[in-house]
């Protein structure tokens, strides 16, 4: 199950937190947290260097992009129709003065949040059931194995036929994307609970329920929160697939509509917004789960 989960992560996002196996060892928790480190001159210098490199890298990329599209480079990959950075900037300025643009963003965020919440609830519950009960695992695992590799796009026709509204079918597709990584990470987290901790709790008089609450669930939390972060990333992929093919709103629709109407700067703007929202929401998931994992960070 672990190796399959890895495949999925590769498809999804290779985030630094999606290494639950390492998180179990105290050594791994010594990973540097530059933001929380005490500010020493050396750290400050390092930070300055990183910032400088980031700036150099980004401006270099922008210049290259500008030159490539300005001169309509064509070496198999064709830059003729790629808008220049300044055209994208102009498109951005004109779009942010238009409320319709924010409606697209708002609709997408709402869909992702709703789908992600449902996927988190069902995913964590399913994962716990599978991790704790052999019967549940035997009965649910085949469905997970068969359905998981099906990409969100492949679900679109059936989803449209099955669900009463377009909105519900898009939410269903987005939900599916987030659901599987959350389930698999939860199962993994629950199963890796160290046996000695369970025994210790038994010897302290803990009931089965108390062992779950105080041992199994907290032990699974690092893995669950990694699953949530990955699930959030995959939710955005799936949402975009859904929005491109059906719907009249959403940032995916905005991007695809720009393509149909040959507003190339808007295509790039749409893509950048998607990237930004994806990063932002994954960071938000991490920030929200961080307080639950503070015991990991306070190690020496």
């Amino acid at each position: 199950m672990l190796s399959e989960r890895k495949d999925l992560m590769d498809e999804a996002m290779a985030t630094p937190v999606d290494r639950p196996a390492e998180q179990a060892s105290p050594a791994a928790t010594k990973a540097p947290h530059p933001a929380s480190a005490r500010i020493s001159p050396a750290a400050l210098r390092e930070f300055g260097q990183s910032a400088l490199l980031l700036l150099l890298s980004l401006s270099g990329g922008l210049v290259l992009w500008h030159v490539a599209s300005e001169n309509a480079w064509d070496f198999g990959v064709n830059f003729r129709y790629v808008p220049t950075p300044s055209e994208v900037l102009d498109a951005t300025i004109s779009n942010i003065s238009d409320s319709a643009f924010f409606v697209h963003i708002g609709v997408s965020i709402r869909r992702v949040l709703l789908s992600f919440l449902i996927a988190s609830g069902l995913g964590i519950l399913t994962g716990i059931a599978m991790g704790r009960s052999r019967i549940a695992r035997a009965m649910i695992a085949p469905y997970i194995e068969i359905l998981r590799p099906i990409p969100a796009v492949a679900w679109i026709p059936l989803a449209i036929l099955m669900w009463p509204t377009e909105e519900s079918s898009i939410i269903f597709i987005t939900f599916l994307g987030a659901f599987f990584p959350i389930v698999l990470n939860t199962v993994h987290g629950v199963q890796q609970t160290p046996d000695v901790l369970v025994r210790a709790a038994q010897s302290l008089g803990a009931s089965r329920l108390a062992i779950f609450q105080h041992v199994v669930f907290p032990a699974a939390l690092p893995s669950i929160s990694a699953g949530l972060a990955i699930g959030m990333g995959v939710a955005w992929f799936s949402l975009l697939a859904g929005e491109i093919i059906s719907g009249q709103y959403g940032i995916g629709y905005f991007t695809w509509d720009a393509y149909s109407m040959v507003r190339t700067p808007d295509i790039v703007l749409g893509m950048l917004v998607i990237g930004f929202l994806g990063t932002l929401s994954t960071a938000a998931v991490r920030a929200l789960t961080a307080p639950l994992l503070k015991w990991q960070k306070r190690t020496r």
Binding site: L197, A200, S203
Partner: peptide, 20 residues
């Protein structure tokens, strides 16, 4: 018949709950 608080256990591996 089963583990219980009348028999306190100290293990070789560290067995404190890391999140508490």
């Amino acid at each position: 018949e089963k583990p219980g608080p009348d028999r306190g256990m100290v293990f070789q591996q560290y067995s404190l709950l890391p999140w508490k």
